[in-house]
């Protein structure tokens, strides 16, 4: 694993320089998911990524996490090229990835246990997080006995319990109901404020992106590359429900949507064309 000692303290938390990712498709062809992507996330910065579906947002996150290597270009975390999976990374996956054979508690304990934390201590930390995501009374259940939103909250607790300083979140709240979503968003902001971790938050919900982030990155229709970056100058601390009502919020929303909407339209037309 990478030692944090090598890190430059002034380097950006995450930096992608001309990163590209080409996949081999089952039919043998090549598919470019990400092309020539430049993205910088400062330390302690909250960056939201929005873009049309299938453009390569998830792929970008796997590059940052070290799960995949870029075909071209560079990915740096803390100023150091990514090699394998760093211990400081937390990743909330878009798909269900909790372990079905472990109970809720055991799922949340998995991270600390993998990292060599003693069982008692891991359990304590896991219980704390289960309480925060509102699942304290479900700790003995197996994932298949939970609702989709509850499983997602298990996944959140599972990630947060490791105290990641680089937090990658791939549409983490999309399976949640509106109330829990607001609650979790506020919780996330609070947590993030406390730890000073750097967050890349992928979402298809532009409102959510603006409410949470310091910076909203709009991606082009696939292959993904950064189309435009919008700094969000709404004051913190924010409460996601109330910040939506501010006039400045609506202004920003309109501005970003004019950029994003075009890419969404392109993607939709492409889909229609290939379907025809």
């Amino acid at each position: 694993m990478i030692t944090s000692g090598k890190r430059h303290s002034d380097a950006p938390a995450i930096e992608l320089r001309g990163a590209s990712k080409v996949f081999r498709t089952p039919s043998g062809g090549l598919h470019t998911a990400v092309r020539d992507l430049d993205l910088t996330v400062e330390q302690g910065e909250f960056v939201a990524v929005v873009g049309p579906t299938g453009c390569g947002k998830s792929t970008t996150l796997t590059l940052v996490s070290g799960l995949e290597e870029p075909t071209e270009g560079e990915v740096l975390v803390g100023g150091v090229p990514v090699e394998g999976i760093g211990p400081e990374v937390g990743f909330v996956f878009q798909q269900d990835a909790v372990f079905p054979w472990r109970t809720v508690l055991s799922n949340v304990m998995a991270g600390p246990r993998f990292r060599g934390v003693p069982t008692a201590q891991a359990k304590e930390r896991a219980r704390e997080w289960l309480a925060r995501v509102g699942l304290a009374s479900f700790e003995d259940r197996y994932p298949h006995q939970l609702s989709g939103g509850m499983r997602k909250r298990v996944a959140l607790a599972q990630t947060f319990v490791n105290d990641p300083s680089i937090l990658l979140m791939d549409e983490p709240f999309s399976a949640l109901d509106v109330q829990t979503r607001a609650l979790m968003s506020d919780e996330l902001l609070e947590l993030w404020g406390g730890t000073g971790s750097s967050v890349v938050f992928v979402t298809h919900d532009l409102e959510e992106a603006i409410a949470l982030a310091d910076k909203v990155v709009v991606m082009t229709a696939g292959p993904a590359t950064v189309k435009q970056t919008f700094p969000i100058d709404l004051p913190r601390p924010r409460k996601v429900e109330s910040v939506r009502l501010e006039p400045r919020f609506v202004e920003i929303y309109r501005e970003i949507w004019s950029s994003l909407g075009e890419e969404v339209r392109i993607t939709r037309e492409r889909g229609a064309a290939s379907a025809a």
Binding site: L67, F91, F93, A97, V98, F99, A110, R115, Q158
Partner: peptide
């Protein structure tokens, strides 16, 4: 499931743990 393996690795599992705690159970 590749997602489970990816999740385990992100959570801090090495190859041995992935084998024992993800591959064998599934």
């Amino acid at each position: 499931d590749r997602n489970l393996v990816a999740n385990a690795r992100i959570l801090g599992a090495g190859n041995r743990r992935v084998t024992l705690q993800v591959v064998i159970p599934s």
